[in-house]
């Protein structure tokens, strides 16, 4: 089977998790794409850890405000009814359990629910930013990642080898192959995305994956 990396499918599937009124924090990079696919009839509240509730889309060219950015310093807008707050309040909201979902990028994620995404010792050390607080505080932690590294190795592991961002905090992993729940030190494949098959995913992933009895084959569109 040929693998073609597909970030959009990951974003599209994650966008279907949310119900109206839920508070969501989207990380920088792939997770940011999720915002593009939230169904029209669902109104979520996007929290941005740099101090905003009601994060809106990018402004039109020429309308940028240098005082209004997302956590990646890109110009954004604020939705009607939104508000601003300082960083202590922002992380009070995050640690205090007031964020329903956090969606984060991944270097490695393992079957115990550990996540590594802030440090490759000696090589790349971006820092954890708000990711440790978000994974600790959010009700549901979704790891969003292409299934494979450029080398072809699976990003889903038995055990992370890199320094951890989160210990046993990940609830769901969505890759471009499928949706996995993390429970009792196993991944549970609950949705397999077309054209892939559960057998192929199991073969290509060096981790303990249980295919759920009610695992569905899903076409992402």
């Amino acid at each position: 089977m040929e693998y073609i990396a597909n970030k959009e499918n990951i974003a599209k599937r994650i966008a279907k998790f949310f119900k109206s009124g839920e508070v969501v924090n989207l990380g920088i990079g792939l997770p940011t794409l999720v915002g593009n696919y939230v169904p029209k009839d669902v109104t979520i509240v996007l929290q941005s850890e740099n101090g905003m509730m009601g994060l809106g889309p990018a402004p039109a060219k020429g309308e940028e405000n240098r005082d209004l950015t997302n956590a990646g310093s890109a110009p954004v807008t604020v939705q009607i009814g939104g508000c601003f707050f300082d960083s202590a309040t922002s992380f009070g909201i995050i640690r205090g359990g007031h964020v329903d979902y956090t969606v984060l990028g991944v270097l490695e994620v393992d079957q115990e629910g550990n996540l590594a995404n802030y440090k490759v010792p000696g090589k790349m050390v971006p820092g954890m930013g708000g990711a440790m607080d978000l994974t600790t505080g959010a009700r549901v932690v979704i790891a969003a990642t292409l299934h494979f590294e450029p080398s072809g190795a699976s990003r889903m592991k038995r055990k992370c080898t890199l320094p951890l961002t989160a210990a046993r905090e990940v609830n769901v992993v969505v890759t471009d192959l499928g949706l996995f729940e993390v429970m009792g030190d196993r991944f549970y494949l609950t949705e397999c995305f077309e054209p892939y098959t559960p057998e192929w995913i199991l073969e290509k992933t060096d981790a303990d994956i249980v295919v759920k009895n009610d695992c569905r084959i899903v076409k992402i569109d």
Partner: peptide, 19 residues
């Protein structure tokens, strides 16, 4: 600078730093 040992960098979770 950090990798060359020129500057000490201490990374702190953002919410912890704020608090």
């Amino acid at each position: 600078q950090m990798n060359a040992g020129e500057t000490v960098v201490e990374l702190v979770p953002q919410g912890t730093l704020a608090e």
